[in-house]
Amino acid sequence: MPLKRNVSYWEGLKYKGGGPMWAWILHRLSGLGILLFVGLHVLASFLTAQFGSDAGITINIIYESWAFQIIVYFSILFHAVNGLRVILLDFWPALLEYEREAVWAEWFVIVPVFGLATYIIITKAFGG
């Protein structure tokens, strides 16, 4: 079932879906991001194990940098929490009435958990 758009991407961006729309976009991006992260990681470990290449080391230097860790952590945390919301509301459709509230509730979980970890990562990265 391909999408038939009669609007441009730019017009699409102005769609006022609100919280749940952004949650859907972020879910997509974070899911793809994690897959890319895991895929490159597997590929690098394969190259290192089979051909003794330096790809594994190169990629680990990137993966262990503080900025990268913050992005990966956000992707996984958001995808997991939002995924749980999707699962719950799909299995109990009666709750769909409160979808906007559910998305707000997600952020109440994500912001403190993410913020605390980010604070620790950054203070450690800068001489903590």
Binding site: P2, L3, R28, G31, L32
Partner: peptide, 20 residues
Amino acid sequence: FATMHGTNGLRMVLEDYMDA
């Protein structure tokens, strides 16, 4: 589970933008 979830997720995304 993780790799199957991820690759199937990629399939869903790509097929959203493809013609049958």
